[in-house]
Amino acid sequence: MFEVLSNELLAENLHKMVVSAPRVARARKPGQFVMIRLAQGEERIPLTIGDADAEAGTITLFIQAIGASTRRIVDTKAGAFIRDVAGPLGKETHITNWGRVVCVGGGVGTAVLYPLVKALAQAGNQITTIIGGRSSQYIILADELAALSDTLLITTEDASLGTKGFVTGPLAEMLADPLRVPQAVFAVGPVPMMKAVAELTRKQGIETIVSLNPIMIDGTGMCGGCRVQVGSEIKFACVDGPEFDAHLVDFDGLNDRLTSYRKEEAVCRSAAECKIGREVAK
């Protein structure tokens, strides 16, 4: 059993939870995730470890409640318990000093981006962070990211905060400017956003890393549900990833596989007392 130490609402449906998991906290590296299962009978859900405090024995999880299972998770109050937390899983992010780096986050992907930005800053990179959302209430961690970045840019589709438009707007401007063009780009967010970023950086051959969150069951290198086409190979996000070279990822295939349980999700959302649910924790 893993105690929830705090549970804070950051934005609509987006919670920040600090959970006691001493072994995970000690072993965890940026880029890794945990599998969590709230209680007996609940599904296993992969969640990126947003932050960790090895001394306090805690991990921070950012959870977007978009379906029945994640809603039940975020309803867990401080002092209550999560039955299963297993990790840290996946490979750690390859962190080096590239020089100029752009970090792009969309929606809850911004939370996944946060530990990367932190590690990249510690490695001495000059960081421009671009975060975006539909509207200002979906912009999260802006202060935290601003503190770690040289420049923080915000985009919203309705112009309620920052520049109107998508995260790809400011990125395209930087790519076109010889003085600002980055040596590496990290992008985490909805699949279409990561695809758009990959397309932008492809021509110039700028190293671009994305963190994927496909369907996962065990997360420990067994079931093969998280397979993704990367170049000519089938890769497994839980053991080979979750980060991959964006220029090799088949985003359309990934996006399509994420819709495998759309029918069940719809049943779930329409039912008042939802019991059958499946969401892609994204």
Partner: peptide
């Protein structure tokens, strides 16, 4: 192999 509805036995 990546079509929806293709499972590995373990999954």
């Amino acid at each position: 192999e990546n079509l929806k509805g293709v499972y590995a036995a373990n999954e």
